[in-house]
Write a protein that binds this DNA or RNA. Structure first.
Lengths: 337, 337
DNA sequence: TATAATGCAACAAACGATTGCATTAATCGT
DNA sequence: ACGATTAATGCAATCGTTTGTTGCATTATA
């Protein structure tokens, strides 16, 4: 009780070492200004009491937050594939890349009710920058903030006239790749499973269309606007299969999740893949290689995506006004096509 | 240039309003000590300039961090199902529950090289508490810290003699449920796919064994210690199927991810599920209902799990020394069994 | 009319670090 | 051995809030 040993701050440690707080601060920062002997003595003392200087106080003084906000906007109509393996993968990559740069990751899912959701976190001073995972239907809000707030990047589509910086894959190109592949496989009749309300999906569909037109099969495409969640995709597709007279022999699913549901629905209808129908997905999620049969798909490289997001963000934190980045999608051929 | 309008802190706003900083602080906190008229005037002023008091400074003064650390320890040997949908689901739930309580979520994946990984974040003063997602092989480290640091809870197994507070499902019971179900389906020969190095898996296996013994089939079990990642599970299982003379007709997979790989391997070997082999998974991940055939599995209710984690944590932050919680697993019968 | 009771707002001291500048101690050249 | 130079430490202001205490006007009470 007399002398309760716990070192709670730099001043306690200073007293213990018989020096001033300032010296301790510099010693722990390994500053050359402090004699090597003193420095090591203080560091050793800190280790003994496993004392670590308070990060918040440091950040306040230093005027940096030491954290990056990662926001997942959940606008309901396009808040589709949240809870996808997709997000966890990206998030994991981001966490690693940020840690490497000495920053923490402040995660928020936000349901954008009022337009203040974004500025609220930006202006709170808790974060040095913001990474948005998907722009949902909030392009307007994001663009507006981007005009006055530089350190922000978004994962997602790069729309014409867009103010904010984004990183995303070339969805149109992806659609083209998928379609071309199916054409090469000899398909003549096509279906696209996915809801083009989401801009990314619309782009994929556009690529698909363009490719078909170029192959002179512009009218051989049916569109099934299936919602992207696992729960709703299957019944929709199943019903569609019931009602369709001639099932197309080439199916492009707007995501692997949809493709997986399609796989099941087709199997239940006794349609063989890839025998009767060639199927291709999108994203190359971890499970895509484990379905029966393993899914052909279009890979979005989330790892380099994450690297770009973090890279751009830190350049923006440094004051640079970076341009958006569009990644190349890649065709992965497995056994469903 | 003359009067650059941006309000950066409470003092700027005070000047603008012609009052002292203290008054502004109280006004924004809606304190009764300030006349209603002044209060509203200041609040209006703040809104106009969309000024928000600096959270870090506030937290420093108030002596709270306003954030909860969510750590994902990645001990390699059991760092299995990171990137599982599992995590994203839990994480999402946690994010929501924490936001509701006015706290941010500080995410870190940690690779526990030295034993300081945990105390480093705890003692940094950045967080008011810690939630661990899985204890990996770090039980010792966690227990040690738990002795001096109250506000910490972990998702995972509740081992005997464990000091720290955990929330997890009853893995033994889950193993029993799965096994009993297969017994009822008429299986006579069993295999367990999963590596019992992870304590959770070991428990599931124990439950499985116990149930078999009780049914008088204690010696009808083969164990295949397959690694839990999607990449490694399939080849291991496939090889095993090649080498096994008589394939058991009841297979218990330690996770849905493994079950999915098993499904593929079995299909490739021309074994029909559930015709020749009854298969059951574990977790009830989102994709479990979308495989061909849909997976029977043991559900862990992550939603109530997350609620418990957060609940317990805040009670601990309040000084209460809470006991661990064990959740009931639930058998979900689909078509693979 | 003097005095007590009240309501509002200002003052200033924390919170726990960092850092420019002043000060003291140590080293050097002659 | 003494002043000049340099190396090592201490001092105190600062980051942007919160909050206990104090002081000044009012208004209510005697």
């Amino acid at each position: 009780m007399a002398d309760q040993g716990r070192i709670r701050n730099i001043t306690d440690l200073a007293k213990l070492a018989g020096v001033s707080p300032g010296t301790v601060s510099r010693a722990l920062a390994d500053s050359q200004l402090i004699a090597k002997k003193t420095r090591e003595r203080i560091q050793e003392l800190a280790r003994e009491h496993d004392f670590r200087p308070n990060v918040m106080a440091r950040n306040l003084r230093i005027k940096r937050a030491g954290a990056i906000g990662v926001l997942i906007p959940l606008g309901h109509e396009t808040g589709q594939h949240i809870s996808d393996p997709f997000f966890m993968t990206l998030l994991g990559q981001l966490a690693d890349a940020l840690t490497e740069r000495g920053h923490d990751l402040l995660l928020s899912r936000v349901i954008p009710t009022d337009p203040g959701w974004l500025s609220r976190v930006v202006d709170s001073g808790r974060v040095d920058g913001v990474i948005l995972i998907g722009q949902s239907d909030q392009s307007a809000v994001i663009d507006k903030l981007a005009e006055r707030y530089l350190p922000m990047v978004a994962w997602g589509a790069n729309l014409p006239g867009q103010v904010h910086c984004s990183v995303g894959s070339d969805n149109r190109k992806g659609g083209e790749l998928a379609t071309r592949h199916l054409i090469e496989r000899g398909c003549q009749n096509f279906a696209f499973f996915g809801d083009p309300i989401a801009p990314e999906i619309a782009e994929r569909l556009a690529g698909c269309r363009a490719e078909l037109v170029q192959a002179g099969m512009g009218d051989a495409l049916t569109i099934l606007p299936a919602h992207l969640t696992a729960e709703t995709a299957h019944p929709t597709i199943s019903k569609w299969l019931d009602e369709t007279k001639t099932i197309p022999n080439g199916i492009i699913a707007a995501s692997d999740v949809i493709a997986m549901s399609a796989l099941r629905a087709l199997s239940e209808h006794g349609v063989s893949v890839p025998g009767e129908v060639h199927l291709i997905g999108y994203d190359d999620l971890a499970f895509a290689s484990q379905t029966v049969p393993p899914l052909s798909t279009i890979r979005q490289d989330l790892s380099t995506g994450a690297t770009h997001l973090v890279d751009l963000l830190f350049r923006r934190i440094g004051g640079e006004n970076t341009a958006s980045v569009v990644l190349e999608p890649k065709l992965i051929v497995r056994q469903s096509s």
